[in-house]
Amino acid sequence: MTANGKPLVQLAGVEKSYRRGAGRVQVLERLDLAVAAGEFLALMGPSGSGKSTLLNLIGGLDRPSSGTVVVGGERMEHLSEQQLARWRARHIGFVFQFYNLLPALNAARNVELPLLLTRLNRTQRRKRVELALSIVGLDHRLDHRPSQLSGGEQQRVGIARAIVTDPTLLLCDEPTGDLDRAAGEAVLGLLHALSREHGKTIIMVTHDAHASARADRTVFLYKGQIVDAIPA
């Protein structure tokens, strides 16, 4: 819950469908979900169950076909594209499965990207970048390009980029999906620490039951609906 007792994230009657050819594909159906501030939530489900779509709706990357998405008291459908972009810059940190770092920029420049949209000067931005990279244990890799980093290191740079603006909410789309077990463990440990020590609200999509075990709560999605357990 937030300070006023309401959930940080609240979805009510959310539906999402896409046009495919002449017909429509229903991805999410009458979905209700509430996530409290500071909660570490795992979203599990088979491929095509709508996990990533749900994450995109919460992060303001996409809009629901119907229903309401409220994050931090802000109703997504009331924001224009431009307002949504600015809102994302202030409140959301994204962590992607394949890291999505810009290959031409070094680690520090990648982490600095969201800060370019703020009023911080160069020195202030540099300090923030160094702090974020030190939190993920990569303050010695500032000048390395993504191609010079291992998968686990790249994902930690991705996490540093997600937390550098100190966002309200971290949205992680299968953050360990492309990593070996050891690197995956390190990333999960980091997310866990961000939740416990820094009070970050985290929603993590995963296929991995081991990963979801690190979360406070796991929600299962099946054919666009929240279910108690995934059918066998």
């Binding site: 431009q82 810059a89 990207l113």
Partner: peptide, 8 residues
Amino acid sequence: VLKAVGFT
């Protein structure tokens, strides 16, 4: 990615 992190 740029748009996801907040670029309009």
